[in-house]
Amino acid sequence: MLSPLHKQLLNNYQQDFPLTATPYLTIAEQLGVSEAEVLSAFQNLSQQNYISRIGPVIAPNSIGASALVAMAIPEADLQRVADLISAYPNVNHNYERENRFNLWFVLMADDAAQLETLISEIEQQTGYSAMLLPMLADYYINLGFELNLND
């Protein structure tokens, strides 16, 4: 169960986690609780797997090159291809989606040339072609993920 403190920690500190020597104390003072309570609540959220980390979200393509990739794979072969792709350390967010293009993942590389090399390798290894969909513009300014945790 999420306490009111858990909910505040989840919703209010996605964009500007305090950059102070004692950030958990800073949060405690903002919320009118003790530092120990904040530390234990964050430990709790982390153990229960509600947060993946407290850290940076790096602007896409500001370091290296990345692209969304889509592939159309016959259902019977999907698990095999998905496993091959997940095994790449350069791959994250590998999802099945309801579409003829049913496999979607994000591929990261040092630069555009390495991205092309990796795509060719994946195509050769899996036997299917891939659509490379790099981001051309990021319109989303309102950052973070607004959780409705009232119900």
Binding site: Q14, D16, N49, I54, P56, V57, A59, L143, L147
Partner: peptide, 17 residues
Amino acid sequence: ALIKRWGVVVKHRQLGY
């Protein structure tokens, strides 16, 4: 803006989304 945001990264699936 190299760091787009600095803070809690939530797992939306685990939180019921």
